[in-house]
């Protein structure tokens, strides 16, 4: 690689700092807000005057507990199930798409792409009516199904690209070595596809975890309402207090798993997104 001149280095450093600040400032601001006393929210300072955990107590043990804890449970449960189903289905579909020549292959891929770029907001109203009629409104399943429509297309696309990079010869070699088709898939392909499947699972999880529109429109009680939607129902301790602190605390809590997952698996994610595991 070319070594950079000093000026170029400085320029890059400046750009990096600007981008970092731009990206992280809102996050830091929310964290700071989450530690402010409700009475001091309007002081206009960036950092809390007195650091307090009142907001966290409120969402985990206090008045917002009944709103937040079920929502957290819903979010985790629904996102995990949606991710699991999406990844299993997408793995099988993507494998078929990468390996087999069948009629309608193009159609499936284009449909998947179409579904994923279709504006959510235009589906949600008909879905609302339909769910009310067939009893899926305000249930886990009622959210898992629309989440699959978000997570499946992207999972199929990334996994198909991933499977295409695994040399078909490996599978054929396994078959010649005495494996059945299923054994060849399990012993030669799955281990190589694992990083790709994992990356896809993370992406799918984040999509489900971050959804707001379906969450707010298709639920009405804490039976199925996920965290992003639940935040809208937070109220202050009295009607003169704003719930901003509690909302910030809840936002921090739901951001933490995302940050932890990304930090833990950043190498897998990067390699999963950039290469496809097999070289040479």
């Amino acid at each position: 690689m070319r070594t950079l001149t000093t000026r170029a280095k400085v320029a890059w450093a400046v750009i990096t700092v600007v981008v970092l600040v731009w990206a992280l400032l809102p996050v830091v601001s929310i964290i700071a807000t989450s530690f402010k006393l409700p009475s001091q929210l309007n002081l206009g300072t960036f950092w809390p005057k007195t650091w307090t955990t009142t907001n966290y107590e409120q969402i985990f043990a206090g008045s917002a507990k009944d709103l937040f804890l079920p929502a957290l449970r819903n979010s985790i449960g629904i996102s995990l199930i949606a991710t699991f189903v999406a990844v299993v289905l997408a793995t099988l579909a993507a494998y078929a798409i990468a390996r087999l020549d069948f009629r309608g292959k193009k159609l499936i891929l284009t449909t998947a792409l179409g579904v994923s770029i279709f504006p959510v907001i235009s589906i949600v109203t008909p879905l609302f009516n339909l769910w009310r009629n067939i009893g899926l409104y305000d249930t886990w399943l009622g959210l898992i199904i629309p989440y699959l429509s978000l997570t499946l297309p992207i999972s199929i696309w990334t996994l198909a690209a991933f499977f295409r990079q695994i040399p078909w010869e490996l599978e054929q070699a396994a078959q010649v070595d005495g494996a059945t088709s299923w054994q060849a898939f399990r012993k030669a392909i799955v281990p190589l596809a694992a990083p790709g499947v994992f990356t896809t699972a993370l992406i799918a999880f984040f999509i489900a975890w971050n959804d707001f529109v379906y969450g707010i429109s298709l639920t009405s009680t804490s039976a199925a309402r996920p965290v992003p939607a639940a935040l809208a129902f937070f109220t202050g301790a009295s009607q003169f207090e704003e719930p901003t602190g509690a909302i910030s605390a809840a936002a921090v809590v739901v951001t933490i798993p995302v940050v932890i997952l990304v930090l833990l698996f950043q190498r897998q994610i990067v390699s999963g997104l950039t290469q496809g595991a097999v070289k040479g």
């Binding site: 010869e169 490996l170 054929q172 070699a173 010649v176 595991a277």
Partner: peptide, 15 residues
């Protein structure tokens, strides 16, 4: 068929 084959790109299992 119980045949053994050596492929052009070897087709070794990388994992």
């Amino acid at each position: 068929r119980h045949l053994a084959m050596v492929f052009q790109n070897y087709a070794l299992y990388p994992h």
